[in-house]
């Protein structure tokens, strides 16, 4: 038996919104550690890893480790039936091919029971080694989102260059080119507005903007984003989910042919 209860139901809605444009179907892994997912986009260029730790839920019961295959698009449709302030309970029994979502209004005067069919999904987990990154940039997530949106109106790729001067995001397209530099700014009184750059080596990497822009759908989950870069390695774009875990996106870089 598996049952989890999340008082802040809007969080699950935001998590699914942050995944649904990247992944069609995915196995959610349930264990005593929590509720997690690892999935690639259909072209295997990007990977998303979600972790929601059991301690972050008001109630979490998972008798044995198992996976639930779900269509993310269908899950998003089901979660549309929940209001933002609803409490969400997810339940599944051993051996059944359905999952139940229960949405309770805070005053308990409305309860919705939604049943969704599970799917068999064949997917391998990839081993992601713990790596030391050459450069780590922490910046406001809204700032990163607006940079990606702005640059994607000009070009299809973004080159991220980290140096002592700061982090520069640049693009080039048919109509012209643009670059935006953010300098370290840790003196601000509000930590969520800080930009902090930890650099061991200067790094320059180029990525497809369409994927990076999809990652920024997670902006509402965290006020800060962490971008970790090493030469010839996938970038990691991480949004922490307060008291619960994180959503991490990995994107393979482009190389000169």
């Amino acid at each position: 038996m598996f049952e989890l209860r999340l008082v802040q139901g809007s969080l699950l809605k935001r998590v699914i919104d942050a995944i649904k444009d990247l992944v069609n179907d995915a196995n959610f892994d349930c264990s005593s550690t929590g509720f997690s997912l690892q999935a690639m986009d259909s072209s295997h260029v990007a990977l998303v890893a979600l972790l929601l730790r059991s301690e972050g839920f008001e109630h979490f019961r998972c008798d044995r480790t198992f996976s639930m295959g779900m269509s993310i698009a269908n899950m998003a449709k089901m979660l549309k039936c929940a209001s933002n302030d609803d409490i969400i309970t997810i339940k599944a029994d051993d051996g059944t091919d359905t999952v139940t979502f229960m949405f309770e209004s805070p005053s308990q005067d409305k309860i919705s029971d939604i049943e969704m069919k599970l799917m068999d999904i064949d997917s391998d987990h990839l081993g992601i080694p713990d790596a030391e990154y050459e450069a780590i940039v922490r910046m406001p997530s809204t700032e990163f989102g607006s940079i990606c949106t702005s640059l994607s109106t000009i070009g299809d790729t973004v080159t991220i260059a980290v140096s002592k001067q700061g982090v520069t995001f640049s693009t080039k397209g048919d109509i012209g080119s643009g670059n935006i530099t953010c300098r370290q700014n840790s003196s601000t009184e509000k930590p969520e507005e800080a930009t902090i750059i930890e650099m061991k080596e200067p790094v320059v990497l180029t990525f497809a903007l369409k994927y990076i822009t999809t990652f920024t759908k997670a902006t509402s989950l965290s006020s800060q984003v962490t971008i970790s870069l090493s030469s010839d390695m996938p970038v990691v774009v991480e949004y922490k989910i307060a008291e619960m875990g994180h959503i991490r996106y990995y994107l393979a870089p482009k190389i000169e042919e």
Binding site: V45, L126, G127, K254, I255
Partner: peptide, 14 residues
């Protein structure tokens, strides 16, 4: 011309 790499080039199946 730039070539897009895939994730499996970096991370192997567990």
């Amino acid at each position: 011309q730039q070539k897009q790499q895939v994730i499996s080039r970096f991370f192997a199946p567990k």
